[in-house]
Amino acid sequence: MANDTMVTLQGWLGGEPSGRDVGGVLVTHFRVACTPRRFNRQREEWVDGETQWYTVSAWRALADHCLRSLRKGDPVVVHGRLTHRSYVNKADTEVVALEVEAITVGHDLSRGCTEFRRTSPAQGFEPAAGAGAGASGAAA
């Protein structure tokens, strides 16, 4: 843990979060798009850079809270451990995927307002109820 690469992302949810049961533990996955903006002094205007996509995974209570709280298009701030994996896609091209195992996730309050609601352990994820694609088994 001492040598983990920690990152903080500021971006937008690219789709609805999806949750699933992994051995009785809820994990939620979602994609975050981060588009850097730079001021071009020659043109005197803001220019968008290339959008970078990150897959984020959240576990246990954080996973449940992400399912209940996040929606496609939401501005978010994610802090966690950066990992990468390589694989060969269908076009036979090697791809490097950047992934973040979230420690904290929240709405980006520089983009709007939100309301905090504390949950109790009794309101958490129940594996028997299942976690379908994009919805938790618990009522919001």
Results as ranks from 00 to 15, higher is better:
60 R>L: 06
120 S>V: 12
19 G>S: 02
87 Y>Q: 08
116 F>Q: 07
35 T>Q: 07
36 P>D: 07
12 W>V: 01
1 M>Q: 10
71 R>E: 09
29 H>P: 00
130 G>T: 05
129 A>S: 08
112 G>N: 11
31 R>S: 10
30 F>L: 01
103 I>M: 13
39 F>H: 13
93 T>L: 13
119 T>R: 13
128 A>C: 05
5 T>V: 15
12 W>E: 07
51 T>A: 07
102 A>P: 02
85 R>K: 08
103 I>W: 07
59 W>T: 05
86 S>V: 10
121 P>K: 07
71 R>C: 11
140 A>Y: 09
62 L>W: 08
100 V>I: 07
13 L>H: 09
63 A>S: 13
66 C>I: 05
10 Q>R: 10
45 E>R: 14
39 F>Y: 15
130 G>W: 02
3 N>W: 04
13 L>F: 02
84 H>K: 10
18 S>T: 14
9 L>N: 03
140 A>G: 13
98 L>I: 06
85 R>G: 07
62 L>P: 04
17 P>R: 03
54 Y>Q: 02
21 D>H: 07
32 V>Q: 00
116 F>P: 05
21 D>L: 06
133 A>G: 03
73 G>S: 11
11 G>T: 09
122 A>V: 13
9 L>E: 00
31 R>W: 07
95 V>F: 01
51 T>E: 13
69 S>W: 00
110 S>G: 05
9 L>W: 05
73 G>D: 09
59 W>L: 13
37 R>N: 06
